Amino acid sequence: MHSAPSPLDHAPVLPVVVIEDATDAVPLARALVAGGLPAIEVTLRTPAALDAIGSIAAEVPGAVVGAGTVVSARGVADAAAAGARFLVSPGWTNGLLDAMEASGLPFLPGVSTASEVVALLERGVRDMKFFPAQAAGGTAYLKSLAGPLPHARFCPTGGITATSAPAYLALPNVGCVGGTWMLPADALAAHDWTRVESLAREASALGG
């Protein structure tokens, strides 16, 4: 459906980044890319998010930066204009899906029920975000979906840690997991990009 690769196919872990200060975006992205996590989801939860996406897109050649927490057609347009190369939503409506499809960018609409998965498959969408993963049933839930809905592939996000990630990644219907554990608050506050790179490297090895 899209010529660009799915966000599920870049690395086993998709870092979910909340950026408060846009000047942190480039060094943060460089650390993640150096650690082997090229796809980076910057959530549209802060005023700095769109500037951060633009900076990463312009200044970090190895990064594939996307926008997360996309919940409206306006969010789709703003993210695309800023330079986002993929879109992620916590949930979806027909209107939001129409806007994401019209953007031409790869996208991961969020689901947490079997009916939502069926509705997306009906519209030709196979790659989805499973959110909030732990709260919505975790690996047991995804395992249950694999039988009746084998064509759906997921990026579970929400409450996943370095410890629980391998169990998700072992499932046949999981392409990658989303998480924040490689971005500890104290490391970000201290601008300790070396530590971020080290944690990213550990995360990128989980898929092996």
Rank of each mutant, 00 (worst) to 15 (best):
A34L: 12
A34Q: 11
A34P: 01
G35S: 14
G36Q: 12
A39T: 10
A39F: 06
A39M: 08
A39V: 10
I40D: 09
I40M: 12
E41W: 08
E41Y: 09
E41L: 13
E41H: 11
V42I: 15
V42K: 02
T43D: 13
T43S: 14
L44C: 11
R45P: 10
R45D: 14
R45F: 14
R45T: 08
P47L: 12
A48L: 09
L50P: 00
L50N: 00
L50R: 00
D51S: 11
D51K: 04
D51F: 01
A52S: 15
I53V: 15
I53Q: 01
I53E: 00
I53P: 00
I53R: 01
G54A: 13
S55Y: 00
I56W: 01
I56C: 03
I56E: 00
A57R: 00
A58W: 03
A58G: 13
A58S: 15
A58M: 10
E59G: 05
E59R: 02
E59A: 05
E59V: 05
V60P: 02
V60D: 11
V60G: 05
V60H: 04
P61L: 15
P61V: 15
P61G: 14
P61K: 09
G62L: 11
G62V: 08
G62M: 12
V64A: 11
V64H: 10
V64R: 08
V65S: 02
V65F: 01
G66L: 06
A67G: 09
A67E: 08
A67Q: 07
A67P: 07
A67T: 11
G68T: 07
G68W: 04
T69E: 09
T69Q: 13
T69D: 08
V70E: 05
V70I: 13
